[in-house]
Design a protein around this nucleic acid. Structure first.
Lengths: 152, 152
DNA sequence: TCACATTTAATTGTCCGCAATTGAATGCTC
DNA sequence: GAGCATTCAATTGCGGACAATTAAATGTGA
């Protein structure tokens, strides 16, 4: 009788898509790090800046929804961005519960320095753009199914 | 003249595979959390246990290589597992620089309680096994290319 | 209008993740 | 075998991530 093949053992590390995703996220982080160091940003801070470069003057809540992060993560992160003079935090006058995040001139200007980042990342992946777009779409679909399960 | 299409703007959040991976990793974490709470483990702790269930009595270094984590992460994590009586940490007698991690009987026993986890995760992904295997292999290949760039 | 629920950020505490440093053990070279 | 580099784990410090709680502002219904 053959022992159970390791190729289908569901408890094996190598067989777990979650570990693949988890370790790929860390690998990306390590590739981004030297590029983002030049901008004075961490990766999560870079994500917040991407949101703001698309649309300025947004409440914390909206940033959280786009990045799937809560105020426990965002509040201190935004305070660090404010300390670095990249954003300004002001309470909304219409709804005093909200804090609106706006780019400073330096925050806006940083976008130009960031333009070369995606290109460098693309090179590091050693993939074609179309391959990456396909993978990205699959991963996003998977993520959305997982998030749907959580919400239920 | 049409303005630049957002579908190809490389600084758009939606177009970045890294954000897809990053947010998928968090989504996985949130799905795992209630399952792992029943085992008294966090996700990184669960990964360490997966390594040990495959092979016991391993040096910290080897765990780190398999999980792409360093001692700054593993040392405190392993101390918490030891405090939970799941592993024992002992300095190797052959090479006193190494700390060997061995499962306790409780650590071994926990494997049985963990067997149902991959099944639950599979259900949450709402994917076929073959789809997941394909995606996993693609993501691992991407991760390995990224790690190769870092090492260079 | 007054109680009550809801929304929103902020706070606190715990656990990762990693860079940088330290210190002990080992290996290597002359 | 003495000096020197390397290896390995531990430590420190900083920045996420998130659960749980708090507190203020807003909305709602009797």
């Amino acid at each position: 009788m053959a022992r159970k093949s390791s190729a289908v053992d569901p408890l094996r590390l190598d067989n777990q898509i979650c570990f693949a995703v988890y370790s790929a996220a860390h690998a990306f982080n390590r590739v981004y790090k030297p590029l983002l160091d030049r901008l004075g940003l961490t990766y999560p801070q870079y994500l917040v800046m991407l949101v703001l470069w698309e649309r300025d003057d947004v409440p914390v809540k909206e940033i959280g929804e786009k990045l799937f992060l809560d105020s426990g993560t965002l509040t201190p992160l935004l305070k660090r961005l404010e300390a670095g003079h990249l954003v300004k935090r002001t309470r909304s006058s219409e709804d005093e519960r909200q804090v609106l995040i706006a780019l400073t001139p330096q925050g806006h200007a940083l976008k130009e320095k960031a333009r070369s980042v995606p290109q460098s990342i693309l090179a590091a992946t050693d993939c074609s753009v179309s391959e990456l777009v396909t993978m990205k779409d699959e991963i996003v679909a998977l993520r959305d199914r997982l998030n749907a399960v959580i919400g239920e």
